[in-house]
Amino acid sequence: MTQKHYNVTGMSCGHCVASITEEVREVAGVSEVVVDLAANAVTVHGTGLDDERLRAAIVDAGYGIADPVTA
């Protein structure tokens, strides 16, 4: 299992967390999405994660990405 971390811009409430979680869960290989509103961070756990698709899911949810970091 791998994980990817993203610094997300534009999050401000629980609805933001739910929107991102819903969009990212739809990406193939995702097993868990952890959104930290206070840190403006999203961590995705899964197998065979596609960085481009994960980034697109966050953007499709209506948010920006700053300095994506893969661990």
Rank of each mutant, 00 (worst) to 15 (best):
G64V: 05
A28I: 02
D60Q: 09
P68G: 06
A57T: 03
G62H: 08
S31A: 07
V69P: 02
Y63F: 15
G64T: 05
A56T: 07
A28E: 15
T2Q: 15
V17E: 11
L54E: 04
L49N: 06
S12D: 15
G48R: 02
G10M: 05
V34R: 13
D51Q: 11
G64W: 08
V8N: 06
V59Y: 10
V42Y: 00
P68T: 01
V8K: 03
V30Q: 06
G48N: 11
L37H: 08
A57Q: 04
G29N: 14
A41M: 11
A61L: 05
L49E: 06
G14P: 02
V24I: 11
T9H: 04
A57W: 00
E26D: 11
V44M: 09
V59F: 08
G10I: 04
V27C: 05
Y6Q: 01
E26F: 02
G29F: 06
D36A: 13
V17C: 09
D50G: 00
T2K: 15
V59R: 13
V24K: 02
E52I: 06
H5W: 10
M1V: 05
M11N: 04
Q3C: 10
R55N: 12
M11Q: 04
E23N: 13
V35T: 11
D60A: 15
V44A: 07
P68W: 03
Q3Y: 12
N7R: 10
T2R: 15
A18K: 14
T43E: 08
A41F: 01
E23G: 04
V8E: 07
V34G: 01
E22V: 01
A71R: 10
C16R: 04
A41W: 00
H15A: 05
K4A: 12
I65V: 13
V27H: 01
L54T: 00
T9L: 10
G29E: 07
A71H: 13
E32Y: 09
V27Y: 02
M11D: 06
T70Y: 14
C16N: 01
L37T: 10
E23D: 10
E22S: 14
M1L: 11
A71M: 11
G29A: 09
D36R: 09
R25Q: 14
G29V: 06
E52W: 03
A57G: 01
T21W: 05
I20D: 00
Y63E: 05
V17F: 09
V44K: 03
E32F: 09
V30H: 04
T9N: 11
P68F: 04
A71F: 12
R53A: 15
V59Q: 15
G14D: 02
V59K: 12
R25H: 14
P68R: 03
I65C: 09
C13W: 02
V35N: 03
V24C: 04
S12F: 13
G48L: 05
V27T: 06
I20L: 07
S12R: 15
A38R: 14
V27D: 00
S19H: 13
A41N: 11
A57R: 02
T9G: 13
A38V: 13
N40Y: 06
A61V: 05
E32V: 11
A39F: 04
T70D: 13
G29R: 07
G14Y: 00
V44G: 02
A57Y: 01
L49H: 00
A66L: 15
M11E: 01
A18F: 08
G46L: 07
G62A: 08
V34Y: 01
